[in-house]
């Protein structure tokens, strides 16, 4: 019931947003929201903490930007190329990372993501510390000019809805049920005959792919793939978004992404204090607010 209300609310807010808010800012929110939803699929439902999701987000942004800018790909093909790259990368990272469990899993993903970060810094086409700049937005399907902010906005909104829908379907499928069983008790899931590693790997690949979709879209929106998108702090930020909104809830990551991104935006003029504030929110969330905004909301509505 609550999910339906929230979904209708999200739909209306998303449709009308460009008329009362700055479209580029809302597009940024949508990209981060999709990124956080993809991350939540992994941590919230499969119980796997990846500390390297920036590699998929940032990696896809660079690849999409490069094929559009240097090879003249149209925007949709560019975004898809970036997404496929994230999928392949996700398969490789996932294959390696699921060999270790729990806390090691987080460390392995973090270290692997650092390889992508250094590549983004050192490879000849990435523009080093300046990032990959001047990505043309181009024409969608050959006739819709993405230079028009409204057309661009609705394009991004549709991508977000597709990604969100995919994640929703995944969570509420038998596959999603098995993932949650693995999260609750891995040994038991194994003893029931589920190939735990295959389920984990598939969840990792889906999550990485959609994180890549979000990153590639962001690159087209800003016409720019920045080094920060591949930095470990971005991996930390997406964790924070998911945690603030509510781990393992459908809408939590969306709410969390909006909260954290809006906060960083508002506090932009305070320089490094943003980091201090985000760190403090992190500590407070972990200590006393582990359910997150949506999680608390669900608890209150259920009590009635």
């Amino acid at each position: 019931m609550m999910n339906r209300v929230l979904f209708i609310f999200m739909l209306i807010a998303g449709m009308t947003a460009p008329f009362y808010a700055y479209p580029v800012f809302v597009m940024d929110l949508l990209c981060f929201a999709l990124f956080a939803c993809a991350f939540n699929l992994l941590l919230g439902y499969a119980g796997l903490l990846s500390f390297g999701h920036a590699a998929f987000f940032g990696g896809a942004a660079y690849i999409a930007g490069h094929v559009i800018k240097a090879w003249g790909f149209p925007p949709l093909a560019g975004i898809l190329t970036g997404t496929v790259f994230a999928m392949v990368l996700g398969a490789a990272f996932g294959y390696l990372a699921i060999r270790r469990q729990g806390i090691y899993f987080a460390m392995v993903t973090l270290a692997l993501a650092q390889i992508i970060y250094f590549m983004a810094l050192q490879l000849p086409f990435t523009g080093g510390e300046n990032g990959l700049q001047g990505i043309p937005r181009g024409q969608l399907l050959g006739f819709l000019d993405l230079g028009n902010p409204l057309i661009m906005y609705y394009f991004v909104f549709v991508i977000f809805l597709i990604g969100f829908g995919l994640i929703y379907r995944t969570i509420h499928s038998p596959f999603g049920e098995v993932l949650q069983a693995i999260r609750e008790n891995e040994d038991r899931a194994l003893s029931l005959g589920y190939d735990v590693d295959r389920f984990k790997l598939l969840a990792f690949v889906i999550s990485a792919t959609l994180a890549g979709l979000a990153g590639a879209t962001k690159a087209v929106v800003f016409q720019f793939a920045s080094l920060t998108t591949a930095h470990w702090q971005t991996s930390g930020e997406v964790i924070l978004m998911t945690l603030v909104g509510g781990l393992g809830t459908v809408f939590g990551p969306v709410v969390g992404a909006i909260t954290v991104a809006a906060l960083s935006h508002e506090l932009g003029s305070f320089g490094s204090w943003v980091q201090v504030i985000l760190g403090t929110i992190f500590v407070v969330c972990v200590l006393v607010f582990r359910r997150g905004i949506i999680g608390e909301l669900e608890r209150v509505t259920r009590k009635r």
Binding site: L49, F51, G102, I103, A106, Q233, G236, I239, L243, G271, S272, W273, V274, Q275, V276, I277, L278, G279, T280, I281, F282, V283, C285, V286, L287, R290
Partner: peptide, 21 residues
């Protein structure tokens, strides 16, 4: 155990941000 990692990550951001100022 992941909560310990997340907590100390938050502490890292705080310390790093303070000194960056």
């Amino acid at each position: 155990h992941i909560y310990g990692l997340l907590l100390t990550f938050g502490i890292t951001l705080i310390l790093q941000g303070l000194f960056s100022n």
